[in-house]
Design a protein around this nucleic acid. Structure first.
Length: 714
DNA sequence: GAGCACTGC
């Protein structure tokens, strides 16, 4: 009999000695035993529970979800798939996975319980908490797995992980056989990975009767999840938050920014004490709002107002300021903290003590145009679900108020119920490659919860075909197999795999890593010149990609020193993470059996080889300078300009670009000058003139082909 | 001569 099965006896059936001890009424454990609760930890070799366990257990029992423990366990036993809806504060994320582990133990089921999270921090912090609750060593029986970090052991029975990580695992373990229960948490967020996982897991469930699936979500989409998963049972657990009173504006607001600041000042001047959370759309807006509010607060006879900005690119020590206490009262008027934040405060970061929420009703959202394959950010109205989530932020510690800067009618009639899932707003290149690797051949009929428009899928398939990842029948090629192993966009993956042929894989590894992390150049508004001259040291005048390579080399040559970064206006965090990414890519690169090589620096082909390697992944992102002097993207004929941050010091005839950014204008960012004949070498298929729209670029390529033909004849 | 919603492998 396995240890697990033997240990099962302990649950709920205390042994004779324990019952005898209870009669003495001394220790806490003994008292527990007397009322039929276990006193030893079946998950830790039958060790007695610590005192701390009982302390935490008391708080666990106060969670709303505790009342549903037996009901949930029964539902799990009786069904393969179930949906659990739990509002904020229900305790579902920490408790449900434990209940699953209990069921596995009690029923002698082998295999791990996995609980997925959209974000790394959540996976880590929840795992730590649950290890404490279960009174086991963190990283042993309970652990977590995220990119770059696997904090689990061979004894792990409950594992928190990012949803992207589970998807990676599925590529090598298509039926996810090491798991007996998979819990998809925060499913309502509908991230790309969650959506792919849902489709995949639904398929796996059909062929693995022993696999249990729990989908956990906030309220709004419950029935949709239920019907998607074959009308499975649903358990609803109430949350534990304080009531939030909602106020709408009587009239639509022409300028949400101005209305937001006005509302903030009114709350500060006339409402009882309590901190404010104001949602705006981006860094610039947020910094401006903070400046204005600081000034305003001095013009009135009111308490002190502490204005704290919050957005993801803010350095962590600045982000910490959101937890500073509000200033004390002044002349009997309350001091107050106002946090001015992007959407990051809607899901990722929770601030306690917020009593007032101001919701102008907008957020920057990703939109995708499949015709020109461009993703861009657009300020757009939020959904009802988002508005509800934002309002909820006011009721975490006591009853609060939410001020919506739009009319009730607009809320009811104009806001969509939920935010469009990311799947419908993204370039699906990576998703398609992943699904192919997972053995899903018929993508058009794949059971997506919200199927993407066919054109988006077609563009992704076409792109992967040009990259050589899929053959003409849509099957994964050996190049495609390798590409799918790399945690990169397909273009970057292709460029890396092709780099050994161009004798520069060492350099391309560095460039790809640098392209995969946030922008490393810092340019403070009041030190632009200093920052620009610091950057000038690294500039390669024909290529932003090579400029990035120079930065990485300098970083390494200076022992990855933080001071070096500070002195040179470089983002240390970003460069550190580029180095981690590079190490990870290098490991995979070697595993794939690819050759690590470099062209000698003295060789005149050193830079050309690098540019050709970049082109092998990015030949679909080329811009051509027209006779008018402006740039047009090749084949799509979009008017674009080279981004002012570019280190290119001339205007090359042909250039590849890494990103197309749509803001005030169509920009191409991170560019490298190339020679037109390299285009033909990189992909004769893509530059086949029979399906090329008429334009100057076509005429030049035509001439080039004729010249080559003549040359070959001679 | 301008900008970086947020995640994740």
């Amino acid at each position: 009999m396995s240890d697990r099965k033997r240990a099962r006896i302990d649950i709920g059936t205390p042994g004779a000695e324990q019952t005898a001890a209870a009669a003495g009424g001394r220790s806490e454990a003994a008292q527990k035993a007397a009322i039929g609760e276990p006193t030893t930890n079946v998950f830790d070799g039958g060790k007695p529970f610590s005192d701390r366990y009982y302390e935490i257990l008391a708080t666990r029992k106060e969670l709303p979800v505790w009342q549903f423990r037996d009901q949930f366990k029964k539902m799990l036993r009786d069904n393969q798939i179930c949906v659990l809806v739990g509002e904020t504060g229900s305790g579902k994320t920490t408790q449900i996975p434990q209940y699953c582990a209990e069921v596995c133990h009690e029923d002698g089921i082998q295999g791990m319980v996995s609980c997925t999270q959209p974000r790394r921090v959540a996976a880590m912090s929840v795992a730590q908490r649950v290890a404490q609750e279960m009174d086991v060593k963190f990283g042993e029986q309970v652990g977590y797995t995220i990119r770059f970090e696997d904090f689990t052991s061979k004894n792990t029975l409950l594992k928190y992980m990012t949803d992207g990580m589970l998807l990676r695992e599925a590529m090598n373990d298509p039926l996810l056989e090491r798991y007996s229960v998979i819990i998809l948490d925060e499913a309502h967020e509908r991230t790309l990975s969650t959506d792919v996982l849902m489709g995949l897991i639904k398929e796996i469930a059909a062929s693995r009767a022993d696999l249990k699936i729990v989908v956990m979500s906030a309220t709004l989409d419950a029935e949709k999840f239920q019907s998607y998963f074959n009308d499975c049972p649903l358990l609803t657990v109430p949350g534990r938050t304080f009531p939030v009173e909602i106020f709408y504006t009587p009239e639509p607001q022409p300028d949400y920014f101005e209305a937001a600041l006005r509302t903030a000042m009114q709350i500060h001047r006339y409402e009882p004490e309590g901190d404010i959370l104001l949602f705006l759309t981006g860094e610039e807006e947020i910094e401006e709002a903070c400046r204005t509010l600081r000034n305003e607060a001095q013009n009135y006879d009111c308490g002190e107002l502490l204005c704290v900005p919050l957005y993801s690119t803010l350095p962590p020590n600045m982000q910490q300021r959101i937890f500073d206490p509000a200033p004390p009262a002044r002349n009997g008027k309350p001091g107050r903290k106002i946090v001015v934040s992007t959407n990051i405060a809607e899901t990722s970061i929770t601030i306690d003590g917020i009593v007032y929420v101001i919701d102008p009703g907008f957020a920057k959202q990703k939109v995708f145009n499949p015709r020109v394959r461009v993703e861009s950010l657009l300020v757009s109205p939020i959904s009802k679900a988002s508005a509800q989530q934002r309002a909820g932020r006011a009721g975490r510690t006591r009853p609060g108020k939410a001020f919506r800067l739009y009319t009730e009618k607009a809320f009811k009639k104009q806001l969509q119920d939920t935010t469009h899932p990311e799947m419908l707003r993204s370039n699906l290149g990576s998703v398609v490659l992943q699904l192919k690797k997972l053995g899903i051949d018929d993508l058009v009929n794949f059971d997506f919860m919200d199927p993407p428009v066919p054109e988006t899928l077609m563009r992704a398939l076409e792109m992967l075909n040009y990259l050589g990842a899929l053959d003409d029948d849509g099957n994964l090629t050996s190049v495609g197999e390798m590409m799918s192993e790399l945690p990169l966009d397909p273009e970057l993956a292709k460029m890396l795999i092709a780099s050994p042929e161009h004798k520069c894989s060492n350099e391309i590894l560095s460039i790809v890593a640098m392209l995969s992390v946030p922008n490393c150049f810092i340019r403070p508004n009041d030190q632009r010149n200093e920052a620009d001259s610091a950057k000038a040291q690294f500039v390669h005048e024909e290529s932003d990609h090579i400029t990035l390579l120079n930065v990485y080399h300098a970083f390494v040559a200076n022992n990855m020193d933080q001071k070096f970064c500070y002195n040179n206006y470089l983002n240390f965090r970003s460069l550190k993470s580029a180095d981690s990414v590079r190490q990870q890519l290098l490991r995979i690169f070697k595993r794939l059996g690819l050759e690590l090589n470099s062209t000698p620096f003295e060789d005149r082909r050193y830079y050309d080889n690098i540019k050709r390697a970049i082109l092998s992944g990015f030949f679909m992102q080329v811009a051509h300078k027209e006779r008018s002097g402006g740039y047009l993207t090749v084949k799509d004929n979009q008017i674009v300009s080279i981004h002012p941050s570019s280190s290119i010091n001339h205007r090359p005839q042909w250039t590849i670009y890494h990103e197309f950014v749509l803001t005030t204008k169509n920009w191409i960012r991170t560019v490298t000058a190339v020679k037109p004949e390299w285009l033909l070498d990189a992909s004769p298929d893509y530059f086949d003139l029979t399906n090329f729209p008429q334009c100057e670029a076509k005429i030049e390529i035509e001439r080039l082909i004729q010249r080559r033909a003549r040359h070959n004849k001679r």
